[in-house]
Design a protein around this nucleic acid. Sequence first.
DNA 1: GAATATAATGCAAACGATTGTTTACCGGCA
DNA 2: TGCCGGTAAACAATCGTTTGCATTATATTC
Lengths: 340, 340
Amino acid sequence: MSAKQPTIKEIAKRLNISISTVSRALHDHSSIGLRTKTRVKELAKELKYEPNQAAIFFQQRKTFTIGVILPFLSELFFSSAISGIEDVAVKSQYTVLLGQSRDDANREKHIIETMKKHRVDGIIISISKHTTNYEHFNRLRQSGIPVVFFDCIPNMTDIHYVACNMVSGTVQATSFLLKNGHRVIGLINGPEKLYASKQRQEGYQIAMSKHRLKYDPSLIVNSDLTKEGSRKAVKELLEHKRKVTAIVTFNDYVALDAMQYADAQQVAINKDVCFVSYSNLPMVEYLKYSPMASVEQNPYLQGQKATEMLLELLQKKEEDQTDNSSYKIIIDSHLVEYKQ
Amino acid sequence: MSAKQPTIKEIAKRLNISISTVSRALHDHSSIGLRTKTRVKELAKELKYEPNQAAIFFQQRKTFTIGVILPFLSELFFSSAISGIEDVAVKSQYTVLLGQSRDDANREKHIIETMKKHRVDGIIISISKHTTNYEHFNRLRQSGIPVVFFDCIPNMTDIHYVACNMVSGTVQATSFLLKNGHRVIGLINGPEKLYASKQRQEGYQIAMSKHRLKYDPSLIVNSDLTKEGSRKAVKELLEHKRKVTAIVTFNDYVALDAMQYADAQQVAINKDVCFVSYSNLPMVEYLKYSPMASVEQNPYLQGQKATEMLLELLQKKEEDQTDNSSYKIIIDSHLVEYKQ
DNA sequence: GAATATAATGCAAACGATTGTTTACCGGCA
DNA sequence: TGCCGGTAAACAATCGTTTGCATTATATTC
């Protein structure tokens, strides 16, 4: 049924020439005569010869594969990012080896091991929310496998990354509310440890002080990003002694849960209390309630940039430049207002 | 910085023994003395030796990689499927090489070529809606790369596939509406060519005849699955001379667009006209309107089954069994009613 | 026709590991 | 002493391709 794939050797034997000649002929090497070239190419086509990539990978110590590790594929943010990654990768003949960490540190570690075994040329990763030990990243560095972080970035020095400027995004989001006359604005933030949470808090504070308003820490509450956590958080804000008229949420999923809870409490969404968030959401137009505005994080662009960065690093590595600088790209986010 | 990875050769040289001894020692081969074994293993650990998978892949003519080609990663149906695929694959030490066809036949073809080059061991694919030429699949077969189709399956003989029984699902969906007293039920189907559309139509007819109702072909309209197409389709049904009180839609995305249009026409969703669909949707609970019920297609399970099937085929291939039977798994779908 | 330049090809090592076949050495036994 | 069996290790081929270097034809020139 499945005859063995023909090899360069096979072609050489049939044409009664040497293996190296065949190889060179197929690569249009200048030192091969025209007649031989065409003879080789014709036979190759006839036999449906295809180079054995596995052999080439091995020979070249390169697999043209990049590993991509994401917490969840099913979130639009990540699936958009991976689209961006794939698009850029494909253009440069790279393929994508996929891993889903499900926000589980062990799974993440295991995936990285597997990818290392597979000798991926490089890795793009948004780390799991629960990754606190960075040992495996150090090991990657030791193995000389370039890593580009994006979105969720570890607290390490000398790393390459692409990220979205959440500070300015949050400033915009908060300012938007302030301009609309809100004065008591709550922030449902993510877990305190996350860098992303810190940035949001910073942005919130900046916006407040820009408008010469006192910063009230009790207006910032944390959600563990579960439904229950978000409900608790919004409850706290709704019951706050000062009348909260607007809320910035860590992301759209939090916003949905918060709005759902508020709605159940007879709060008129975006009237009694306005919501502003970060956009991860598909299908906004079909939703029962959506935030008034969201900070766009451009996941597709982030994916593209991360991939371009990685390809550049690979290029540099190939040219054996021992440049120790770390690459950083910070993408600006901007507020998108939704039609209500 | 990145010292070259140590090889088996390196170990051999340092210990002044032969390469093969090292290899066998690391594999706990019985013919290697205990002392040598421990010496080898210790040095291996010390040098942080890791076998070069690229070399092994090449040597064993196997990559432990399966290619997965899907139309869109961002649809929940597919991202769930890929979760199932990944979970099973990981357990058997396989990794997933990803390709997104975006429902584009050329892209699909190109991805397959790349995967063939990468010498994936097998492929799992849900074909693009616009794939009409199956030449590339035949070529895969010739190369001896097993393929498991799922979800969207080509009209070919002797293929392996996992699919969901859409006929019975549609029978259930339609019967559900009939039991609720509806008599004039519309069906917004997908493109006529699709196998999936044919199954839905068949189910619809079966349900009708079971209830001794005449089959009225004018109640079946097609959508090209774009927003505009679905709006046109529902418009036709809403303006049908018989008063359509319920509609079965090809999938949830169609349902959303149809319901949105109907809503804009002052039709009370799931009161004036009831909707039943096929579930591809995340976040049903947050939606403005959702179908009364959906046929669950178990994408995660389909992904798992497809991967198990592929692994079995690979096993068989390895054992060189030339069994020509084709594997088919048909998963039963069932109706899920939503709380309104 | 010999020397020389040039074009065309072949040789062989290398990439890192696996694995079938030999070899070396030892003790035991007739 | 010589043969056998067994254990432990070495040898060598192999997987398919690339590539530096050597070698052989062919053409050019005097």
